[in-house]
Design a protein around this nucleic acid. Sequence first.
DNA 1: TCATATACCGAAAAATTATTCGGTACTTGA
DNA 2: TCAAGTACCGAATAATTTTTCGGTATATGA
Lengths: 121, 121
Amino acid sequence: MAYEKKIPVDLDCPLRLTMSLIESKWKSCILDELREGIPQRPSEIHRCLPEAAPRVLDIQLREMVEDGLVVKTIYPELPPRSEYRITDLGLSLIPIIDMMLKWGKEHFEVFEKKYSGQSED
Amino acid sequence: MAYEKKIPVDLDCPLRLTMSLIESKWKSCILDELREGIPQRPSEIHRCLPEAAPRVLDIQLREMVEDGLVVKTIYPELPPRSEYRITDLGLSLIPIIDMMLKWGKEHFEVFEKKYSGQSED
DNA sequence: TCATATACCGAAAAATTATTCGGTACTTGA
DNA sequence: TCAAGTACCGAATAATTTTTCGGTATATGA
């Protein structure tokens, strides 16, 4: 595991279970990236999400493999090559991702105004 | 604001905008609690979510007020009384909460097995 | 030879979020 | 008078997550 948790995930709450799989900073974006089912190399994912530190994507992709949301294929070549592909389990989260995407687009302006003067202190 | 962020929320990504409103540990549960539209006092919310530290609920409720997901009514009485009620904006997130609730219930067993030996180290 | 690209990892630092503790102020009921 | 309940808040601490930095190893092209 990437991060050792001292407090276990609360499995009694279905809401928190679902959240725990997608709440990390880039996981929802990764799922959105892989949604078409086309396998992508880590370097491609990095380029699609340039604001994310490559190390975080590594870590979050590995967690998503552990959670069964994506699968990883390693090709024994040099220079090294590997690919990540979304699984059926990962695909089953896409409707949720879509609703969040839709909601975010619809309510954009409200928060654009609200947080326009964010980092001035 | 409760926690001062040094890195601003990425408003360019609708997904991350939506996530930022609900990803805190108890916000989705609070929305689920208030979904019926019945105003609830902080102490009632605390009792409904006994695993949450009261202080966190205070902070997250305040953030949700700032984000316009709930409204707070303070009654100028003694002992003090106040109530939180979900807004239309908050209600518009309920379909997303519902899908996550549904997904979590449907995929429970997989993760129950996977994380059964979590806190043994 | 040297820079760049590939994929990955460990360790430390920084940032964020959650928790605990103690305090304010006033009321009711034992 | 004292305990408990109400609603808060500040500050310190703990836990978690993200970021940065440097390193491994090999291949290609300038």
